[in-house]
Each structure stands twice: as structure tokens, then as C-alpha cells.
Write a protein that binds this DNA or RNA. Structure first.
Lengths: 193, 193
DNA sequence: TTAAATACGGAGGCTCCCTCCGTTTATCAA
DNA sequence: TTGATAAACGGAGGGAGCCTCCGTATTTAA
């Protein structure tokens, strides 16, 4: 999908594509290891390219972070699609939220990046946010329509924002337990609506 | 409370105290108007002091933010203490959480600073976090002990983290409505525990 | 009034993010 | 195969921010 012939007719240069992939891999590794605070210089260095090259591929820091995170998102969306076909709608939602917690736990270091997708910087990656939202809508709509829960009266993304808050605002590494417990509270709370 | 004689015996200098207050006021105004991104230089300038003076009073950016926010916290703690004596424990908790949302709404611009109190940077201001936690424990313990809700199995601060997540990760200005709705979901969710 | 303690302010070090542009390399037409 | 040219490369350097250092100025106490 990145090797299409471009409109001008010339094939994209192989080195460009190669460096782009190297940069994404290096950024992924660096962000995971050290958090979003890694300097752009260090990402470029560990990818073995110059800083200028990094900036040609990703015009600013946020673009790079968003791109790295977008890949992480794929599995989650896939899971949502699979679950949205199961027999127990509410349980499907619950399981998916737990999956989201695991996902956060694996990528807590990228949590600030996540905010770029769920939060205010969303303009930068409206497509991914929309996908996430669609997946969630699917999972929430079914238990609503079958009466398991009344109209929750919230944007389904708020469920994720909630978990994001627990994940990022809790000191230490014990937060996933709290977040999982929070999933039950949220589900029960919506049922009781 | 700041004009005590110090152990050495010398009275603190008047200009120091004056500048400290000017700095706090300027920081409060600047953070509220422009968010936490305001530069330290600008805070110093608008307070009419040099950057060196700012750093003598507040050794780093976070110390300044925490100090500004600590003042904002007072009303909230006061309210918690008052509510913790009312007749309907669960309703008291609900009301206080709504108050917390209002508080966030008034200070959304300082939300990142809030995280310093509820979140990982908490070491920087352990005292304030502990107070907040104590107030919450009070409000949560009563509905638990009188059976209105079973042991929620979470750190009460998680309730705030949840609301913080909704407040900061939602684009635009519509989030307080969602956060208020979330308060009900949380309360109901804990009841159904 | 004078000495000592304390506070003041801003130049400058260091680190970032990002831009600019001269140099190098890959692609394509002949 | 070769040469022309579009495209990519890399890193010096501009600009901004955080924070330190230290010579100067002010306040306090004797």
C-alpha cells in the first residue's frame, strides 16, 4: 500500500521506504522503552538516519507518535470486530474493555500517545479515532438494543477515557487491577442506568 | 503562617514574601488563561520579578504548579468534610463527585496539574494527595459500612482518576455533561458490586 | 551606622524541536 | 550503459525553554 506508483509516474525510491520503516521500528522501540519523552534526535540516531530524514517522513513529533500508535491499534480493532458478532453482547463489551486494559498495560508508556487518539489532538488522526469509535459503537449498541442496558447517555469513548484516566493517573504498576475492577463498575453502572 | 521567625532567629525578608505572593498570583493567572504551557520566563515577567527569583521560590516548574493548585484544593477539601457529616452517605459521595467535576470544569486548564496530585508525580505533594484521599475515604467508607454499597474493591481515588480521564481526554467543552453522567454510572456500578 | 545575611536578576549553559540547503543517490529515458 | 533529474539524505544552526550561577542590591540586627 505504500509502494503504489505515484501520480507523477515515478516509482517511490526504495531507500525512502526503507528508512521510513526503520524510523517507525526505532520509534516504537524507543517509546516503549523510555516513554514519549525520547528526543527526536535519539530516535533518528537509533534508526541510523539523520534528523532531517526523520522530519521529512514525520513532519513533527506528534505525527510520529500517532503513526506508531496507529499500528498498535490494529489488533484492538480486529478484536472488536470479532467480538461484535458473539452471542452475549454485554459480555462482549466487557471482554473488549478488559482487552483494552491489557492493551494499555502493554503500552502504558504510550498512554500519552493514546490521548492523541482519544483526546484533543484527535484532529491529527481523526480516521483512527473514528474507527475506534465505530468499533465501540458496535459493541455498545447491541446490549442497548436488546435491553440489557438502557441508553447509557454517554459517548462510548468515555468508557475508554475513564480507563485511560485510571491508567495514567495512578502511580506505580498496580493500576491494571484497579482498571479491571473499574470495567465491572462501569458495566454494572450502565446496567443500573 | 509564613511570617514565623525561623530557627536561626532572623525574620524572613519582607521582599521575599512579597515576591512569593506576586509569583503565585501571576502563575495562577497565567495557567488559568493559557494552560500549563506558559513559560517560566513569562510567569516571572508578569509577576515583575527576575527568573532567578522565581526559581529561588519554586525550584522547578512542577513545584510552582503544585503550589498554585494546592490553593484551589482547599474548597474541595472543605466541602468533603462538610458533606461527610450529612445524613445520606451515598448521596453525599455523589454530590461531592459532582462538585469535583465542577471543580475540574473551573480549572480544566490546570488538569495536568491535577494529575500531579492524583497521579504519579504525587511524591511532589504527598500531603495534599493524602488529604484528598482521606476526605474521599470518609465519603466512601460510610456507604460501605451501612451496606449501601459493598466494598467497592478500588482505591477511592480511582473515582477521581476516572473523571480526570473523561475531563482531559475529551475534545471540546462538552465533557462536563459526560463526566456528570459518569458519576451516576460509577455510583450505580458500585451499588451493584 | 555598619556588617552580615539574605534576596535579587539576568546572562548563559544545556537540551529540545524543527528548518534549511548543499550533497548524495535512485530512477528513468535514450 | 550512461547521463540527467527528481527525490532523499544528513547535519549545522535558529529559536525557545528550563534551570544554574554569581555579582549586585537590599534588608535585618547589633
Amino acid at each position: 500500500m505504500a509502494t503504489e506508483a505515484n501520480p507523477i509516474g515515478r516509482k517511490p525510491r526504495a531507500d525512502a521506504e526503507r528508512n521510513r520503516l526503520k524510523l517507525l521500528a526505532a520509534a516504537r522501540a524507543a517509546f516503549t522503552a523510555q516513554g514519549e519523552l525520547v528526543s527526536m534526535e535519539e530516535v533518528a540516531r537509533s534508526a541510523g538516519v539523520g534528523i532531517g530524514t526523520l522530519y521529512r517522513h514525520f513532519p513533527n513529533r506528534n505525527d510520529l507518535v500517532v503513526e506508531v500508535y496507529r499500528n498498535e491499534m490494529a489488533r484492538l480493532l480486529e478484536a472488536a470486530r470479532n467480538l461484535s458478532g458473539t452471542d452475549e453482547p454485554l459480555e462482549a463489551l466487557r471482554l473488549w474493555l478488559l482487552l483494552f486494559v491489557d492493551h494499555l498495560a502493554d503500552n502504558i508508556i504510550l498512554a500519552d500517545a493514546l490521548q492523541a487518539l482519544v483526546g484533543d489532538k484527535a484532529k491529527d488522526d481523526a480516521a483512527a479515532t473514528e474507527q475506534l469509535s465505530e468499533a465501540l459503537d458496535l459493541l455498545v449498541a447491541r446490549p442497548v438494543s436488546n435491553g440489557e442496558i438502557p441508553d447509557p447517555g454517554i459517548d462510548p469513548l468515555d468508557l475508554l477515557r475513564t480507563l485511560y484516566g485510571v491508567a495514567t493517573a495512578t502511580p506505580g504498576v498496580e493500576w491494571p487491577k484497579a482498571a479491571r475492577r473499574m470495567v465491572d463498575i462501569l458495566i454494572n453502572g450502565m446496567k443500573a442506568g
